[in-house]
Amino acid sequence: MKNTGNRSDLSDTAREQTAAEWIVKHEYGLTAEQQDEFLDWLTEDPKNRQAYITQSWAWGEIDRLAGLQKTDHAPVNSNLFDEIEIKPFYRKHAITMSIGIVAMAASLLLFIGLFIFENTKQTPQTKESTSVVFNRIEKQQFDDGSSAILNRGAVVSVEYTAEIRLVQLLKGEASFNIEEDINRPFIVEVKGVHVRAVGTQFNVKLSDESVDVIVTEGVVAVSMQNTDNAGVGESILEAHHRANIEIQGESMDVSVGVIEEVELAEELQWHPVLLEFDNASLIEIIAELNTRNEIEIIIADPSLESIRISSVIWSDNVVGFVGLLDSYFNIDAKQLDPQTIVLDNQK
């Protein structure tokens, strides 16, 4: 299936400027009239939506760099703002936010202080890793009860309105569990491909040139959006079916097939599960973790393989587990490369 679209007359710069203005308006809240105007603009051209997503994401990144999110604490670098083309928004916003940032920073210091105080009796710390493959897998709950599991490195942007529940998968892979709402379709948009669901479970994986959709429960519709923002060449996917969508410019080729239970389990093995080990050997536990993660833990000293461990641990908590081996089992854990950890006897 192929679909091609025409280029819009609106220049990219003007489009980005308009998108930035809409973000500002959203910050202050939209009137009913503005809401209609915004939706008209959004549906006028798929590139408008993309520009809006990109600008929203850029703002999210600035928030992160400013240390406003809980997991990253990068210092504010005003030069970073200059590299982005929507300067007026950031300058305006920076003024109104400056007091808030000071309060947040002081609160964070207080938080960190209390956290350290609460943990003064604790001993060894696990080793930090900069590689994304060692991150924990994120679970995200949406307002309507739907949820998503984001594989390591996945990036999504969420936009809920009265008419639509839209999640853009900007990078990586995610599984969705959707609460049914006949008045508000749930759509995952990825590189111009729409995956529409009503009360279902499915997985979407974005690679360089393709999108892979696997349906685990219910039914989803996969289509490409043309310049009129209409779904073209819709393919219906039932449970235990997968669609591989090759994206070529503004067209796509879809191949649909059945996915067997074993293959389905393998594809979704990255989902975190609570693993229980009763007096298991270290080599058994490592084998299980290696299967469920994009990492490889190697046991350098064979004498370690037979160490008996009992544990209840989340399958994505590789760093936590390895850190405990280092702290309590006299096992030295070293990161060999971005995806490999070597376990050896502590000298």
Binding site: E276, D278, S311, V312, W314, F321
Partner: peptide
């Protein structure tokens, strides 16, 4: 060993111990 794993599952938390020690 059994009781501590029950504890972890009931609180949905993670736990680890050397089986021989216990």
């Amino acid at each position: 060993g059994i009781a501590l794993r029950q504890f972890a599952l009931q609180a949905n938390i993670e736990i680890i111990f050397n089986s021989g020690d216990l």
